[in-house]
Structure formats: C-alpha cells, structure tokens
Amino acid sequence: MHSHGKLSRRTVLQGMLLAAAASALPPLDTLAQEEKPGTRPIPSTGERLPAVGLGSWITFNVGNDPVLLAECTAVMEHFFQGGGRMIDSSPMYGSSQATIGHGLRQLGAVDQVFSTDKVWTSDADSGPAQIEESRAEWGVPRFDLLQVHNLVAWQAHLKTLFEMKEAGEVRYVGITTSHGRRHDRFERIMRNEPLDFVQLTYNVVDREAEQRLLPLARERGIGVIVNRPFQQGRLTERLASEPLPAWAEEVGAESWAQFILKFIISHPAVTCAIPATTRVDHVRENMAAIGPPLPDDAMRQRMAAYVRDL
C-alpha cells in the first residue's frame, strides 16, 4: 500500500506509459466521433451513425389510436436510449410520419433523430409540396436524408433533392428500392449520380445485393441503408423454431434477430439496418446487436450457410 505523496517506481512507470499512450491517441472529441462502438461513417462526410436504425413500414401506421401511439412512442424512447438515431419513413406508410412526429414531440427528441424520409409521387411537380407535408408531420426543421422512394419519377425528384441539398434544406440525398427489385436501374443511377445513400433489401437469405450493389456502394463512397432485415418478420418467424447454433455466441448473438442484424451490419458497405417493430423488447434486442463482437468474413459465410441449410 502506497502512502499519499510518495511515488513508487511502478507508479512512475505506469504514468510514463499512460502519457506515451495518450500522446499517440487522437483528441478526445475525435475519439468520440470516430470510435463510438456500433457506429459507421457516412462515406460522403465521415459523420458517424449508429449501425441500427428504426423502420416504420406498417408498424407505425396506427392512425389516431391513443394506445398504439403511446406504444410507438415507447419504442422510440427505448430506441434513443439504446443509442439509435436514424428513423426512416415515407408518405406511402399511412400515418407513420405523424406517429413519428407525435413520438418526437412527446420525447423532446427532435435534436436526437437522424430524420430519414422519402419522396413518393409520380407527379414530379408535387414533390416539393409532399416533402413539406412530410416535414410538417415529423415536426423537424429539415430532413437529414431524403430519398426517392422506389425510383418513382427519380430523375425529376433527384434534381429537386440535389437543389434542396445545395440550398441547405436537406443534408443527404438517396434512392431506395426493396425486395431485390430494379437493381439494374439502381446500379445505373448509383454510377451516374452523386448519391449520399442508397436503401435496399439485404439479409442473411436475400443476398443479391452482395453481387454488384454493395461493392459499387463502397467503390463510389455511398452509404447503404438496409431495409427488410427480417423480411417483415417472416424470416425471424421461420427461424424461431430452429435452435441458434452454439457458435452464435462467438459473434455475441443471443437471438435470431441479433444473428441476422450482426450479419447485415458487419458487411463493410453497410451503414445502417432499419428493422421495424412495435415492441420495446424487440427494439432493445435490436439495439444490443450493434456492439462488438461482429463476425468477420469467414464467420459471415458460415452464418449464411447455416441459415441456408436449415
């Protein structure tokens, strides 16, 4: 036991080592920005985002039902508590935007959310009005990310979105698809437009994006948002009757949902997966999946093969 005011040789050596280590480290604010566990950089800016977000397709379309609105707010509360930021919606999703706006107001979380929405109208001229309606539903000053939903009228809408970005009315611009549709056209747009994000379907069984789109996103510096990670619940329902492999603990997966999410977000091109849920226990389970350990490439192949062979 050392008394105060006296320095032992061990203490001095420890201090010297710590000082040496500290001098080799980046400043603390940079450390927080760059190394926060479970975050990924947005390729176009380096801004970091938690690798698991929150989708709202079907789950947040609850109309004016006060009980269901409260449930959705609770999901959002636990999502933010778990470190989540990106919430994704669309004017196509019924009352989901209004539900998100309700939750943000209740939680006072407008500053926490990475607001991600879409423009979805075949009438190119009505795009700006639709975006403004969406923004009002959310109650945010501006969207962080706006995407052209399912490539509907994509040329005109992308022009609008790039102009908005130039004017500082939106921070990032992207396009979306799902279910593996329109990948050829998607790829052409990725090659020719200065996109910040693409959103597509990818999971342990829907792996077509691995062939061209995910490598292209890395090559072009485009962030990737992954929708339908659980195939709208069908995948997790199908797997529910199967045991998790014993080696799942090597990647820290305690459930099939975590197994799938870890598979998705460990792909080097993926920025964020956006599972949707109505349940607090599920959102907590999802958020717990963003931390280490994550599978390496060999383990990812093993995970995919295991699910394929079930």
Partner: peptide, 17 residues
C-alpha cells in the same frame, strides 16, 4: 414479384382496433 401483403399498409391489430 409483388404479393398481396406488399400492399397491406397496416397490421391486423391496428385494423381491428
């Protein structure tokens, strides 16, 4: 490639409530 459920915007619970 579309299925009927791709057009269903809400869950049964929301509908019956």
């Amino acid at each position: 490639t579309y299925r009927a459920e791709d057009f269903l915007l809400f869950s049964p619970r929301v509908y019956w409530r």
